[in-house]
Design a protein around this nucleic acid. Structure first.
Lengths: 197, 197
DNA sequence: TGGGTTCTTGACCGCCCATTCAAGAACTGC
DNA sequence: GCAGTTCTTGAATGGGCGGTCAAGAACCCA
């Protein structure tokens, strides 16, 4: 046995996530991470490895949180509504409007290590798979229609996150969610209920 | 009069655009710009000012090219189809899959100078306005429906560009365009013609 | 109490960044 | 051909980057 570490990994990882989420991978320096976590560079490297490993860790935790935020809401069309509304809610609920860590990372994914890039890509794939599952539960049969609806709902989710980061007003983001959902329900032959505004 | 410059501004600006488009603002160094343009740093600074000014210039040229690429296609629903198909075409037509310079810049817009940021925001606003104009031409009256349709089509365009940069297959991007267009035509009461696949 | 192990500290490394500048080169007008 | 002006060159600047490391501190166990 030896000297115990003076910090807990969880809150430190959360602080690293905050830093990466706000400034992105490239523009977040080790000094930023050190300031955000309260740990000196040496301790960060001893505990987590290099910047790449820190980002991969943080991205994995982010995916888990996203998964939890979008879970529930029941099956069928209600579940779809729940997912899209949750996307809007978490987007505008962040006062810093940081958008989605995974999507923000796409333009700089060439700067990521392969493992970190894999975490990002798997996370996005999971979100797309969630929408597909919900559509299947809503009674949409496999086929071209399903593909098109998954694409549309995925696109809506991505755009809500991107335009949320760009600072667009909630109304636009909600219009995207409503428009995509109305399209999905109509095309799938599910009675859609227009959302009150 | 004095010594004439040994290069033309236009092809040099085009080279700068290529560099920024590929690697983004932050990760593109002056050395990158120098290598891409064939000019030494001193000449770049003398001709264009600092990195910020170079990016603002380049972004303005990019907007002009985008405007040209999306123009035409006639009025009404045909014009809308033309715009969305053009977005898909220019996205998958780029072998490097660089996506949209403006949208790629959103996550790092905090690193931009205010003038450069303004160019980016105006460019995106112009694209949204183009979709709104086309919808009006297609007979959609002003009101909540118009807002929702603009939002959906804009979201589709943004997502096509983002997911194109992420390397997704053409099929997904075309599904997004088709889904959004089908939704728009259906919701607007315009007879939609399903696209052949 | 003392040896062994692990953690923390903060200075340090070499490199690359955006930017500047003095010196030389190339041109025009006289 | 000379003066004046502008352009090009290439090195230099200070600062920040990701990453490392030796030294000291804190702990467990014997």
């Amino acid at each position: 046995m030896a000297r115990p570490r003076e910090f807990e990994a969880d809150p430190v990882a959360e602080a690293l996530l905050d830093a990466f989420w706000q400034r992105g991978f490239t523009r977040t320096s080790i000094a930023d991470l050190s300031a955000a976590s309260g740990l000196l560079p040496g301790s960060l490297y001893a505990a987590f490895g290099g910047k790449d490993a820190m980002f991969a860790l943080v991205a994995g935790r982010y995916v888990a949180k996203l998964r939890a935020a979008l879970a529930g809401g029941g099956a069928g069309i209600a579940g779809l509504r729940h997912v899209l509304d949750a996307v809007v809610r978490i987007t505008v609920g962040d006062p810093d409007r940081r958008g989605c860590l995974l999507i923000n990372t796409i333009p700089e994914s060439a700067a990521l290590s392969p493992p970190a890039r894999a975490v990002v890509e798997r996370g996005l794939g999971e979100m797309r798979a969630l929408l597909r599952r919900r559509l299947r539960e809503a009674g949409v049969p496999r086929g071209g229609d399903l593909d098109r609806l998954v694409a549309l709902l995925f696109a809506a989710s991505v755009a809500i996150r991107v335009l949320g980061r760009a600072g667009h007003e909630r109304r636009l983001l909600q219009d995207i969610a409503d428009g995509a959902l109305a399209a999905a329900t109509a095309a799938a032959g599910i009675p859609a209920r227009r959302r009150a505004r």
